[in-house]
C-alpha cells in the first residue's frame, strides 16, 4: 500500500493544514514520523492518499503552510519505506 506524507514546520501547522484540508473534503490524519528520517522540523506529518498529494502540496504553498518535506510511504513486508517526494 502506498500513501503520501507531508511534513510541516511544526505541530501547529500540521493541525491547521489538516483542518483546512478537511474543509476542502480532503481526508488526512496526523501521524508521528520515525526519528531516523533525519527531518529538520516537526516530527509529525499528515498522511494522505497518494493521489491527493500534489493537490495538498499546491494548496499548502497557496496557504503559506510551511512545509519541510514530503514522502511517498510504501508499506512492505519488512516495514514502511519512505521515498522523498518533490515538494515543489
Amino acid at each position: 500500500m502506498e500513501k503520501g506524507i507531508v511534513v510541516y514546520s511544526s505541530i501547529s501547522v500540521v493541525h491547521r493544514a489538516r483542518k483546512l484540508l478537511k474543509k476542502k473534503h480532503v481526508a488526512t490524519h496526523v501521524v508521528q514520523l520515525p526519528s531516523d528520517l533525519g527531518l529538520k522540523g516537526c516530527s509529525y506529518g499528515l498522511e494522505c492518499a497518494l493521489e491527493d498529494m500534489d493537490g495538498i502540496l499546491a494548496y499548502s504553498h497557496e496557504k503559506n503552510l510551511n512545509m519541510k518535506a514530503a514522502y511517498k510511504m510504501t508499506e512492505t513486508e519488512s516495514g514502511k519505506v519512505y521515498t522523498a517526494y518533490d515538494l515543489s
Binding site: S10, I11, S35, G38, G41, S43, Y44
Partner: peptide
Amino acid sequence: GSESENVYQP
C-alpha cells in the same frame, strides 16, 4: 517534541 536528534533548539 520535534527534531529530537538535534542538539540545538529547533
